[in-house]
Amino acid sequence: MKLPGPHWPAFRAGLLMHLAFGVTILAVAVIIGPPLAWVLGEESVSTMIALLAVSGRALVGALNSRQLWSAAAAPSLVLSTTLSACLAGYLSVFLPLTVLGLSTTGSGLVSATTSAILALALDCTFALLATCSGALIVSGRSKRRYRPRRFQMSRLPVIREISESFSEHQAKARLNA
């Protein structure tokens, strides 16, 4: 079965969210990590930051997929959109830093590159799994209609664009069918 392409407006929104989250969690780790590690120890602080990163990506995945679910999008479309946005956002932040970091190593460069690529692949997979989990968790709740509250993401221009674009997409699909 061929997976559908991502829903591009939702993909753009998801990419921005993952970019922002990646930079934010890195900034938090850089600023708060060392003083906390000095007090609590590196292992526990690293674990906390890693958990925060995973849950944050799940939350971003949930937010990114919510509008699509509530517009009754197919699960394959939702997942392809949210996962591709996660992949692009994650790699946009951490791939350049990994490459830069590898350029500082001297001897043992080949083994360092291999282990870094492996670590990046594993962490990226983890991020994708977290995003997928977040998207699936909200799938049941978002399918029912809800009344927009005073402050709601549906008011944001990009979300309105997603809804309108999806409605058009659905209308075209019915016509073609």
């Binding site: 930051i49 830093l97 670590a119």
Partner: peptide
């Protein structure tokens, strides 16, 4: 490095 995930991509040197 933990910001990238639990497998510790060498982000710090890159930063």
């Amino acid at each position: 490095d933990a910001a990238a995930g639990p497998w510790r991509v060498p982000v710090r040197e890159g930063y």
